[in-house]
Design a protein around this nucleic acid. Structure first.
Lengths: 342, 342
DNA sequence: CTGAAAGCGCTTACAG
DNA sequence: CTGAAAGCGCTTACAG
């Protein structure tokens, strides 16, 4: 390993000077800088971030916390990671995915370790024990998502109210009235996004005076399938479903099809918060509302780094709506035909 | 932040002694140890890994390298990460996912940084520039997968030959003869697993004197769909497909169905190297051969840590086969019916 | 503009 | 069994 000492010796300067040119922290004459840069090049120097971290008290490592040990990582979720990490590199940080449970204690360990300068929190819950732990341990963070009361916290999130409204409006326009809402339900997780979506759904059904039909579904294709297979019996009057559970959406289509229902003639579907990847799996292709994952990943990273670098700045709080992408699963409401088999 | 100095002061010992009890590196009298442990508890001490890393020259951080910036992260892939990181914690390391391209230069940067002690490499290619870079920069690593000649390298991998043979045998037993092989094809990536699978496929078809039909497909559902829709025209005599592209498998079923072909009556399918998650998305459910992701993640992590801790030990080299999970996409070969629509 | 020196929090021969 | 001290590679007031 070649150190600053080696570079300093070769360039015949002090290691302080080397540090100044490496970091650009102080003015250095053109001549010396060139000498130092030549030495670095010749020796193949790369600053040891461990030494720098110890001296500075900052590592320039950021962690994305996704409870990957407890639930599947969707392609949509990995889009957040991809775009956020690219953005991180752009701003001089490394963003890594830190596998951690939905667990305050593990946060405490991470915080005390001092290994990361900040945290990007995903899959935020209404009352998130991780948020409490991060605040308690004074770890800088930003959320992709938001808690029940996020007014004092930095976040970027999906504007779920408007997205639900848009999905509902789309179905209303096709003459649907009994429009169900299928949400992901995990007992251990009180996902804030789902809660807000359900609230928006209730509001919009009440405003229209239409029935409110909530369906809970695990975040696995198999549970969507199960619901689809029993759909005709369990929801005889429902002609459309808004889905907020991208893992279950293809399974739901499979289950409906298996039970002899036709999508969209018998049941129209809109998948909320998904991506082309999931939409293309089904026949017909899902009509969906795209999660702005790339945008939110970038904005979330910026929110975090802004906090890190300027604690006085305005609190970053951003909401982005999902955007409708037409597919083949929405049709005009009509009388439910008798299932062909089942 | 509470440091060893603080603990030492309170316990009235030297920081060396604190270090010895924290690490268990040297014998310490019961009495002193208890004093030190009490002090640690009272102060809420946690060893600063940055300081330790600088002193030791090791960080105890391991990186899983997945070219997540370039391709989707499947659920199967995330199972590797999940199980490997759990195992890492068990062995006293932190495994994080380091987003990095398929790029030797980025490996060099990571290596020179000294931030990680070792690397777990995924999505290994036949001639992998990352392997060359890791060797050149003397970074300890283990592969999940293997290069063209891995004889001198530590790895764990799927036993593709036997898995392909098993899938083929399954279809032969149902009377199929023209069995195609659909593999993921990405121009930038010469995925070793795919190459080995295709070689095994060629061998087995030749041995049986059956046709060899190779189909290339992008790792996206949409491309599977495209192939499915044109399947009747492009492969009129093919009655079964072995799929090695879990991203495309549901799309293929969707495309076949869309074109009026019945799965499995017209076309039988076996998805190689997949999981229940993907299998449950389609109607009927996919017959698949399960990737032993959990097992390979653990074994891969062990391989890496074994190298790290005992460079003299035997080179870890493990192959695990995929295991058949019956579904609804395999049926006896019969004459292709005329597509109902298309 | 440049350098000598202290310090970041730990580990580890070396003495005793 | 325990401690004083050097050292890991860097940053950053403080002098000059």
């Amino acid at each position: 390993m070649v150190t600053m000492k080696d570079v300093a010796d070769r360039a015949e300067v002090s290691i302080a000077t080397v540090s100044f040119v490496v970091n650009g922290t102080k003015r250095v004459t053109e001549a010396t800088r060139e000498r130092v840069e030549a030495a670095m090049r010749e020796l193949g120097f790369a600053r040891n971030p461990i030494g720098a971290a110890l001296a500075r008290g900052r590592t320039r490592i950021l962690a994305m916390l996704f409870p990957a040990l407890e639930r599947p990582l969707s392609l949509t979720a990995s889009a957040f990671f991809t775009s956020a990490s690219r953005r991180a590199r752009h701003r001089g940080y490394d963003l890594v995915m830190w596998p951690i449970g939905n667990d305050a204690e593990q946060i405490a360990v991470l915080a005390r370790s001092g290994l990361v300068d900040g945290v990007l929190l995903m899959e935020v819950q209404l009352e998130d024990p991780r948020v409490a732990a991060l605040v308690e341990h004074k770890v800088e963070f930003a959320m992709i998502g938001r808690t029940a009361d996020p007014s004092a916290l930095p976040y970027v999130d999906i504007d779920m109210s408007s997205s639900v409204e848009a999905a509902y409006a789309q179905l209303i326009a096709e003459g649907h009235e009994d429009i169900a809402f299928l949400a992901s339900a995990s007992p251990a997780y009180d996902h804030a996004l789902v809660w807000r979506a359900m609230r928006a759904y209730r509001e919009v059904t009440e405003r229209h005076g239409h029935p409110t039909t909530l369906i809970a579904c695990d975040e696995m294709p198999g549970d969507g399938r199960r619901i689809g297979e029993r759909f005709a019996a369990d929801y005889p009057d429902t002609t459309a479903v808004i889905i907020l559970n991208e893992h279950a959406a293809p399974g739901l289509v499979a289950g409906l099809t298996h039970a002899g229902l036709d999508v969209p003639a018998d049941v129209s579907l809109v998948s909320l918060g998904s991506s082309a990847y999931m939409a293309e799996m089904t026949e017909p292709q899902l009509t969906y509302m795209r999660t702005p994952g790339t945008e939110l990943g970038e904005l979330g990273l910026d929110a975090l780094v802004d906090r890190l670098e300027d604690t006085q700045g305005p609190l970053p709080q951003v909401l982005l709506p999902c955007e409708l992408v037409p597919g083949g699963t929405v049709a005009a409401a009509g009388p439910r035909r008798t299932p062909r088999r089942a």
